[in-house]
Amino acid sequence: MYGFVNNAIKDYVVSTFGQPLWSKVKMECALKPSFLDAEQPYNEELILATAKAVSNHIQIPISDILRGFGERISLTLSEKYKFLMESRGENLKDYLVNLPNFHNRIMLIYPELTPPEFRISNVAPNSLYLHYTSDKSGMKDLLIGYIDGLVKIFNETVFVETVESPHESRPQEVFKINW
């Protein structure tokens, strides 16, 4: 992950729970000022640690916090990094179909980035399958929040169902997204 994601997380915490909580979380997680540098790569473990700290302070399940983070990431990208959003498509389906290629291109710009892997299959007029693989466990809820944010951005109604959860022989999540 890069700092623009971390900026979205900070925005979410401050706008939802207030600056005092962000100050506590920042100190507890030993987040350096460069944490918010858009050009600086960070390990996804920091996202999980930040979510855990917020969850512990406000007694909301970490899954809800990660979903909030994910939704805010997509909204922040659409507000502050429009060029990233516009390069992926004009509707949710096109955006998701272009997501794997986008990550491949962005890795050329940010060589230290190790994004999750996305693959699309079973594309039909009203649905598709999104395959998600990450070497970090616990990021499923962040992805679901990200999709929720995209739904708001594109003003579409969708239903997302988990088709497959990770297991030893296949470490991926598969979601069917229906319009």
Rank of each mutant, 00 (worst) to 15 (best):
T16L: 02
L75E: 10
M107V: 10
G18I: 02
S127D: 04
I60V: 15
E79C: 07
P115C: 08
Y42M: 11
V151W: 00
T133E: 14
E45H: 05
A30S: 14
I120M: 08
I47Y: 05
D141P: 07
F102R: 04
L143K: 05
S23I: 08
D135W: 09
S137N: 08
I60Q: 13
F159E: 15
A8T: 04
R72P: 03
P33D: 12
D141C: 05
E164H: 07
G3V: 05
T157F: 00
L77T: 13
T50F: 04
L31R: 03
S137G: 04
E71R: 13
K32W: 00
N56C: 10
M1T: 09
N101C: 03
P100F: 11
K176Q: 09
L142T: 12
N6P: 12
R88T: 13
E44P: 08
E86H: 10
E112M: 06
L21N: 07
S23P: 01
I144W: 00
N101T: 13
G149M: 02
N6Y: 01
G89I: 04
Y81R: 07
V97P: 11
Y110F: 14
P41Q: 04
S87K: 06
G3T: 02
P125L: 05
L128N: 08
G70C: 10
F118T: 06
G70S: 09
A124F: 01
H103V: 13
I60C: 00
R105P: 01
